[in-house]
Structure formats: C-alpha cells, structure tokens
Design a protein around this nucleic acid. Structure first.
Length: 270
DNA sequence: ATAATAACCTGAGGGC
DNA sequence: TGCCCTCAGGTTATTA
C-alpha cells in the first residue's frame, strides 16, 4: 500500500497521540507476517514511546529498551483508536497505551513486518544498506548520476531500488518520470547531467506534493485519523493507461517493467 | 556481480 | 453462482 508519502502521513498522524505515552499491553493475533513477529516485541510493554521516526518506508518506535520496526508492506495500515473499538478482519496487532488509545495494525496480505531490536535500529540488517532519503540533500543529481553511470537497468527500476534511494514506489516512480519527461525504460547510464537534475527535482516535488495532500488513496489507504489521502486527484499517469496524456493528449501507453505496471507517454517521455 | 523472476498472501474484478 | 484468470501501493530469496 504505502510509499514514502503514505508512511510519512501516517507517522505525522500518530506521533502527537502516542509520543511519550506508555505502552501497557501488546496483543498479537497473527504472528506470521513477512517474518514472524519476535516474542521479544513484548519488551515494549510498560515502556514510553520516546519518538516515532521514519527511515524509507519503515517506522521506528523507539523506547528506552529497544525499538519496534514496522513496515506496512503492500496492504498494511495503522490507525489510532479507542481501546474498545471493534475488530475487523486482518487486525493483526494492537499496541495498547495507558491513555486508553490503541495503535492497531491491519494488513490483508501480510507482506508487512513488525520486528524488534535492542541495537541502533539504523544498523539493523534491513535498514543498514538503504540509500539516502529522497527529500534530503544527500539525494542530488551528482549522486544519482554516479549511481546511474554504469547501470544498464531501466531508470524506473533504478529509482525504485531502495539501495539507490528509499521511498520511491510504483506510483511515484511513474509520476516523477512523467514529470521529468524521461522514458521509464531508458537504460540508467544514458541519463545526462541535465536529465539527472530534472529527475531528482521531479522525485522531490512529487513526494512533497503527495505528503502535503495526505498521500494517495487508491483502494483503502487511510490516514491514521481515517481520512483518505487526496493525491490521487493529482496523478498524471498512474492508473491512466489508455487515457489522454495531460500534456500532449495522445493516449498513454502501459507496459510491465520488473513485474510492475508502468504508465507513460510515448511522445512526452524520451 | 548483475539482472530477471518467483515467492510471500488475500481479495477484487472481469470473462465465460 | 462459480471457476479461472489477472491485478494490486513491496521487498527478499532464488535462479540464470
């Protein structure tokens, strides 16, 4: 479900409700996610959540004794509810707080993960090799060009590779490439400095706008307060295959690239 | 080492 | 109504 804007929207929604609140109980109804939830997750009980951070698409719930690492996978969602809220299908985990709120994790497809570490979470095997955050200065045209320089990979796959840059999923990769006027199948090494600059600018702009809009609601993404995101109203290409390009009015093409739907304009994206 | 693709899992929607 | 197929916001593991 979520790319960086949806995860960041979620983080911003739950942070004011949960920061410095004490966990009193963790209820796991389904232990089998992408990886089994470690029993040690119970160490979070009785701890205060000192911060909720985001690294790529991971949320980090820090406490004095360790950090819970949450990834929402394709279909995961969290919301903050009153403790007595009725259960829905696929409500796998409740983290119950002293202030009578419950952080509830729902994930239809169970591609998400909930892990526990007592080490620096940024050194966790899943996080340590991640590329830079796209909205920081570390992600810049010189960096992207250097990573692209010897790569025969399609540029769309390169920008979706979390070792290159985190947080860019299928929606925003399609959108950023359209905005930059770059064909998704271009071998990465054919990008020139000017195109790298445009692409970096487009990725940052698309992600910024999507965060501002509260993320993209396609099927059922909700912000933590239950409201949908509104970025889908600004989508230029994603889900618009066969419809008119908003720049040149020719029909948008679609292809499968790395087993993901890729939508683009044959005329505007070179 | 790099690159394609199979796999994890559930549900919705379309065609017959 | 039911069966079979394809598709879905992600990422790792396996194969070539």
């Amino acid at each position: 479900m979520p790319e960086l804007p949806e995860v960041e929207t979620t983080r911003q929604g739950i942070l004011p409700l949960l920061k410095n609140q004490q966990v009193i109980k963790i209820i796991v109804r389904q232990w089998q996610l992408r990886w089994p939830i470690p029993k040690a997750i119970k160490q979070l009980e009785n701890q205060l959540i000192t911060s909720i951070e985001r690294r790529g698409k991971y949320l980090l719930f820090r406490s004095a004794v360790g950090t819970a690492i949450l990834h929402l996978g394709m279909s995961g969602r969290v919301c903050v509810l009153p403790i007595d809220s009725p259960l829905k299908k696929h409500d796998h985990v409740d983290i119950i707080f002293l202030n009578k709120l419950c952080l509830r994790y729902n994930d239809t497809r169970r591609f998400g993960a909930l892990l526990w570490t007592t080490q620096n979470p940024l050194e966790h095997p899943l996080l340590v090799n991640l590329g830079p955050e796209p909205l920081t200065a570390k992600f810049n045209p010189v960096y992207l060009l250097q990573k692209a320089a010897r790569s025969n990979q399609a540029i769309k796959l390169l920008i979706m590779n979390s070792k290159i840059v985190v947080g860019v999923g299928n929606i925003y990769a399609n959108e950023a490439l359209f905005q930059a006027g770059i064909h998704p199948q271009r071998p990465a090494k054919t990008l020139n400095p000017s195109e790298a600059k445009t692409l970096v600018t487009s990725i940052k702009a698309v992600l910024h706008k999507a965060i501002k809009a509260g993320g993209t609601t396609l099927k059922d993404f909700q912000q933590s307060d239950g409201k949908p995101g509104y970025f889908q109203q600004q989508l230029q290409v994603y889900g618009r295959q066969g419809l008119d390009c908003l720049k040149c009015f020719n029909p948008l093409e679609c292809n499968r690239l790395g087993q993901r739907m890729t939508v683009y304009c044959e005329f505007c994206q070179v």
